[in-house]
Amino acid sequence: MNKNIILCGVGGQGTILASRLIATAAMTKDIPIKTAETIGMAQRGGSVFSHLRLGQGTNSPLIAKGEVDLIIGFEPGETVRQLPFLKKGGAVVVSRRPVMPVSAMIGKSSYDPEKMIAYLKEHTERLIIVDADRAARDLGSARTLNVVLLGAALESGELGLTEEDLETAIQQKVPEKFVELNKKSLAWIRENGKE
C-alpha cells in the first residue's frame, strides 16, 4: 500500500500532532513512513502543511503536485491552497470553520471562507466537510479538531489505516486524561455523520 497525504492548516491548529498520530499508527503496522513538516516562524499563525508518505519505494519527503491521495484540511482557505497537489479522484476532508487572518480583520486583505467551500465542492469528487463548531459543542472542546478530522479521514477510505490503529496511536501519544476525549473525537464523524 502506498499513500500520499497532505495535512494543512494554520500554525497552532494541531497539524503536527495529527501527523504524528498517523505516523505512529503506520509504524506499529510496520508501514514505512516519511514526513516533512513546517516548523519555525510560520507556526505563528502562518500557513502550515505536512507531507506524509506511507509505503515502500519512496525517496523524497515532499510529494509532487497531482500525486496526493488525501488532503486533510484544518481550514477552508488552506485546503484550497493545497488542492493542486490532489490527484484525480483523490479525497478531501475539510473543516468548515475558518481562521480569519489579522490582515483581513483590519481590512488589509479580504477572505471569504464560504467561497472556498463552494470551490472545493465544485472541483473535488470526494469531499467530506466537517462541521467543527458542532463537533466542538458535542465534545465539549475545540481542541480535538485534529482528531475529529482524522476520523473523517478514516471515513474517506484513503488513510490506509483503521480506527483501531489510530486508537492505539492515541493511547501512545496523548496524555492519559485526554485519551477518552480523543477516542470520542475520532469516532465523532462515524457517529454523527458528515455535513
Binding site: 499563525g45 488552506e78 493542486p84 484525480k88
Partner: peptide
C-alpha cells in the same frame, strides 16, 4: 511518465487568505 493521472488544470481559486506570521 506519471504514476497517476493528474487532475485537470484547476481554475484560478477565489482570493486566498494572506497569512504572514503574527504575534500570538
Amino acid at each position: 511518465k506519471r504514476s497517476e493521472e493528474v487532475m485537470e488544470k484547476l481554475p484560478e481559486p477565489p482570493e486566498l487568505p494572506v497569512r504572514p506570521p503574527v504575534l500570538c
